[in-house]
Design a binder for these strands. Structure first.
Lengths: 345, 345
DNA sequence: TTGTAAGCGTTATCAC
DNA sequence: GTGATAACGCTTACAA
């Protein structure tokens, strides 16, 4: 297979490699006729520039790294999917990585991406302050970084998220208004948003003069969304039942837990929403078909993805020093959809 | 930022670039002491080889392309997720692409991947014979390709799938044994597996002397799994109702439709499984929490991903001509999980 | 055991 | 307008 490259094109057309390169890059110096000849020949022979040679020379790539905790979490999946759609008309390629909420894996992903000379990176950090120095160094010296979802991270750059405390405040308030006072809050380990979401939950309780109970903030420890955490949750709720403290409403503070809580309550023979009303924080379209249909707080993944890409491309294009910029913190609006799981008679 | 590269390391240690390169690659020619010095310095200065330079020289990369129809389809998502897990201990990086079942997008993905010099590609083709020539050319001359899921594609290589007709045969048979005879089959457009799955369905009917009805094979046309196809399906079933031909059981032949059918039946005020029993072909863990819990045929995504990677790496390593090889067609076993949606009293 | 030098395919800087 | 030529960072004969 005679490889077709700039040199072979040049030889075939009696031109120099330099001229061919300029013609292919539509340089103003080259006369139209030559350009046409080159482009025609290139098209005919299905010429594709070698990105490695080009990038070696220019130091630039059209790659965009995406670093997320999990692909198997509905929110991140939707986000990635929207990012793919947004990037389609652009001339960039996504390289997604999962960190499993693990700082070390995140570091590996970031190292790999920088070694690939990516043009920019979109990140939802593994932890509130994971890889701070590395992220800072990359953002300042290597390529721009945009943060999304877990925007509590201290890296100074554009951040895209939602108003977490407001959303859980509203969800909690809704349950209170429906007459429920024993409201539990379900959350994973300390991953960024958790604090804000708990704060909204607490504030709602406070504003309605409902005493806050530590035992109603239920922390579930899981490494992976596909992990079987149901049994652990069942145990927790059983204990509450024994103490006659079973909540009659639950706010699910994460994607993963929101989905699984229905199974847990079913296993405990508790009826939703009669015994326990539930509102989840998740982006799965299946919420409508769950048993019962689950009320959910949905994040605007499409807008988030589009904005993330837009801001990233903006930073990629402008060459200014990214240390002294003024970055905006975008708080987009989530949408709460009320379904059967909160329909209290 | 003084970039650290082989030259700078060589200068710092009073060695030649060649020696440094060999030391970094653990060449047998270099004495241990030198290796240690080089490795220590490299580690200390956080040296990362420039992959573009390396690949420009060697013509090899550690990239693996993955081409799937959709990320938002539970089966493909699980597959990709398992692939990520499988590739973790290896020294390879995944570059996933979605084709949206569109041959043109598939071609673009393949072109891009070959231009990136990927070491190999794992593909579930957009259509039964999409990009046949291109795939063949790549497999023979550029890098190995493994096919999965849609293994009807004629490219001669390792293929990994399940016994589609057998699985739908069993599912259909199960419904028949439970006394249902008006069994519909729900499928998307002609994407590879559909034919086989319909065949299994037909065979089961045949073996139990149940006449096959063309109108019970319901083709739903969707471009994207997130598309709202419910209304179209509702219309189809309404027509059947009007003719008093409403099926009392449904076999869902694709991921996407299997999930959505419950919503459709709910909208039609049909009780599952009393009025209509349903068994779906899908890999979502949420099946258990759906309303009602959905019986499903699950594909062994983990085994599929592991096997795909294993076979691909095998082909990457052995340099033999891939045209004259004897390729196996792996048909793995799916698992059917029976839940409420088929529990007929 | 190490050094020298050529070359991978492209682009940029000159020169003509 | 076009052509030489050098250079990007790395690997690999071939020399020493």
């Amino acid at each position: 297979m005679g490889k077709v490259n700039i040199k072979s094109i040049a030889a075939a057309l009696n031109l120099s490699p330099a001229t061919v390169s300029r013609a292919l890059n539509d340089s103003y110096e080259i006369k139209d006729e030559t350009k046409e000849r080159v482009l025609a020949y290139a098209a005919e022979h299905n010429y594709r520039p070698n990105p490695f040679a080009r990038h070696l020379k220019t130091g630039k790539t059209n790659l965009i790294g995406v670093v997320i905790p999990f692909l198997s979490s509905p929110f991140f999946l939707e986000f990635i999917d929207e990012l793919y759609k947004a990037v389609l008309p652009q001339h960039y390629t996504l390289i997604p990585f999962q960190t499993q909420n693990c700082e070390k894996m995140e570091k590996e992903a970031l190292d790999f991406l920088t070694s690939q000379n990516v043009a920019g990176i979109i990140v939802s950090p593994a932890h509130e302050n994971s890889n701070t120095k590395l992220l800072q160094h990359i953002h300042h010296h290597t390529c721009p970084i945009i943060l999304f979802d877990r925007t509590q991270h201290c890296l100074d750059t554009y951040k895209i998220g939602i108003h977490n405390s407001l959303e859980t405040y509203n969800a909690t308030e809704e349950l209170i208004k429906k007459g429920r006072t024993k409201i539990a809050f379900l959350c994973g380990k300390d991953i960024g948003n958790t604090k804000d979401r708990i704060r909204g939950y607490k504030n709602a309780l406070h504003n309605y003069a409902i005493p806050f109970r530590e035992e109603y903030v239920i922390h579930a420890d899981y490494q992976d969304p596909t992990e079987n955490i149901e049994s652990e949750l069942i145990a927790v709720f059983k204990k509450l039942q024994e103490k006659d403290n079973m909540p009659n409403a639950i706010v699910g503070g994460t994607d993963t837990l929101s989905i699984k809580i229905l199974g847990v309550l079913a296993a405990l023979n508790l009826a939703v929403p009669q015994d326990v009303a539930v509102i989840g924080f998740t982006n799965t379209n299946l919420a409508n078909y769950l048993n019962p249909a689950l009320s959910t707080i949905r994040q605007p993944t499409q807008k988030m993805a589009q904005l993330a890409l837009e801001l990233l491309l903006e930073l990629i294009d402008k060459k200014q020093d990214r240390r002294d910029m003024l970055y905006e913190n975008f708080l987009l609006e989530a949408t709460t959809i009320y379904r059967k799981s909160t329909e209290i008679a």
